[in-house]
């Protein structure tokens, strides 16, 4: 089986400081990988380098494209990369307002992404938007309201609908449940898990919440000071951590 995404020696420095370095891994179709670590460990830098939001200083990010097979997305032409990020890739931001257009209606936010890949039939776009709003549990009668009139949890669900409407194969998520209260978090986790299973998505989830990765991720990567210190099956890393930092991280979680 060929990997969907193959990351090789990705490195990013901020002046003399290391953002992340020596990061290599393969992600296979249908796999969900979690990246955990404390603030400043380089997990968001890595995610942004992979998703093409930040230019890394070295390394390769190979993606199994539909037409050309494995291609290094870092050396890809700008239009091609932009097309990729509208079709096969999706990026869910921690703050929904970074991923949404706040002045456009909820339905418009979902429809816009469809139009970006060529959909032009208003009725069909609206129909698909209604369908996706339903899947993320937003009532149809809120479809013409702007996201600024939504609660934080609803905005996050809308952002997910906007991202998944084009049927991406790879989703990058940056703290998707951060800043939401626990009941909304549970709802969102349930939703994400269902979508991942039904659509066969691959996903990379950056978070500092170990309970979230335990429920969502198959595999885990632990980062500290820009380096990957441990990788493995999620429950194995959490239940039998090998590295000193992972042991500290796991033993620091509050028990409810």
């Amino acid at each position: 089986m060929t990997p969907l995404l193959s990351v090789k020696d990705v490195r990013k420095t901020y002046g003399g400081r290391i953002g992340c370095t020596d990061v290599s891994f393969d992600l296979y179709p249908g796999e969900v990988m979690g990246i955990v670590g404390e603030s400043g460990s380089g997990k968001s830098t890595l995610l942004n380098c992979m998703a093409g939001h930040l230019p890394p200083d070295g390394g390769q990010v190979l993606f199994d494209t539909r037409t050309r097979g494995m291609v290094d997305t870092l050396t890809m032409s700008e239009p091609e990369r932009r097309m990729l990020s509208r079709t096969d890739w999706a990026f869910v931001h921690q703050h929904a307002r970074d991923g949404l257009r706040m002045g456009v209606s909820a339905g418009g936010n979902v429809g816009e992404r469809l139009m970006a890949v060529g959909a032009r039939h208003y009725g069909q776009i609206r129909e698909q938007a209604v369908d996706w709003l339903g899947r993320v549990e937003i009532d149809e009668d809120r479809m013409d309201d702007p996201p600024s009139a939504f609660s934080g949890g609803m905005q996050q669900r809308l952002q997910i609908a906007r991202n998944l409407v084009t049927g991406p194969r790879l989703v990058f998520m940056d703290e998707p449940t951060g800043g939401l209260d626990v009941s909304v978090q549970a709802r969102l986790l349930d939703l994400l898990r269902g979508l991942v299973r039904e659509m066969g998505l691959s996903a990379i989830i950056v978070t500092h919440d170990l309970a979230v990765v335990r429920l969502l991720a198959d595999r885990l990567m632990v980062m500290k000071s820009g380096h990957v210190v441990e990788t493995g099956l999620t429950d194995q890393v959490l239940d039998d951590p090998q590295h000193a930092y992972t042991q500290l991280l796991v033993s620091s979680v509050l028990q409810v």
């Binding site: 493995g232 099956l233 194995q236 239940d239 039998d240 090998q242």
Partner: peptide
């Protein structure tokens, strides 16, 4: 048992 399941390394 956990080693057989892959939960422990």
């Amino acid at each position: 048992m956990r080693m057989i399941y892959g939960n422990y390394l």
